[in-house]
Amino acid sequence: MSPEISNQSLLFLIVFVVVPLSLSYFYQLGMSRSILTSSIRGTIQLFAIGYILTFLFDLNAYIGIPLMITVMIIIASFHARKKGRDLPYVLPTLLAGLIMIEVSVLSLWLLFDMVEFVPSEVIPMSGMVIGNSMVAMGLALERMKTEFAENNGRILAALSLGAEPKQASHLIVQRTLNAALIPNVDRIKTIGLVQLPGMMTGLILGGVAPIMAIKYQLVISLSIFSSVSLSAMFVTLVMYKHFFTKDKQVLESKEAFKEYSSRDNA
C-alpha cells in the first residue's frame, strides 16, 4: 500500500460520488443536489478538521487536549439536547454527564498506561467516547419521553396506589436503559466478525501490526461500552425526576389534563 494518497488519486474519488448521482438521475429520486452538496460539505469538513488537528497536535498537550475536549463536550451537549429540548435542565445534565464520563475514562487510560497524554492519542479516542456517549444520551432522552407518554396511565396508576415517583417510573427507567444498552451489547458481540472496527482498520492501514491494532481497539471499544452505559444511566436517572412535580404529580399529564378538559368544554 502506498504510504500516502496523492491529491491526484484523491480527485478520482469523484467516481464514488458519480455512482449515487447517476442513480438519482436515472431513477428521478430528486436527490442529486443533496448528494452533491453533502459530498462537498463532508470533504470540506474533513479537511478543516484535519488542519485543526494538525494545529492542536503541534500545541502543548496541556493546552491542546483540554481545549479540544471542551469544544467536543460543548458541541455534543448542544447536539444531544435537541432530543429533549422541552425538558428542564437538559443542557446542564448533559454537560455534567459528559464531563464526568470523559474525566473518568481519561483518568483510567492514563492511570493504567493505556494511552499517552499526547493530543494525537487522547483527542481522537476522546472524540469516540464523547461522540458515542452523546448518541446514547440523545437516545435515552428520546426513549424516555416516548415511554412516559405511552405509559402515562401506568404511572398514574402506580402513583395513585401510593408509589413514589422513583417507584412509579421504575419500568420506564428499565426500558430506557435496555433500549440504550442493547445496540451496544450487540456491537460488542459481533465486533470483528461483521466488520472490522474503524480504529483498528485505521491503524492497520497506517501500518501498525494487527495485534497492536487490536489492543488499541479493545481499549476504545470497552471504553465506549462502559461510557455509553454510564451516560445512558446518568441521563435517565437524573432526568426522570423532571417528569414529576415536587408533590409527586406527573407534570405532563397535569398539563394535558387541563388542556383536554378546556378543549372539551370549549
Binding site: L161, G162, E164
Partner: peptide, 12 residues
C-alpha cells in the same frame, strides 16, 4: 401524599 393516595383508592 402517598398515605392519602393509599387511603383513597382510585380506579382509572
Amino acid at each position: 401524599i402517598t398515605g392519602l393516595r393509599q387511603n383513597v383508592g382510585l380506579l382509572l
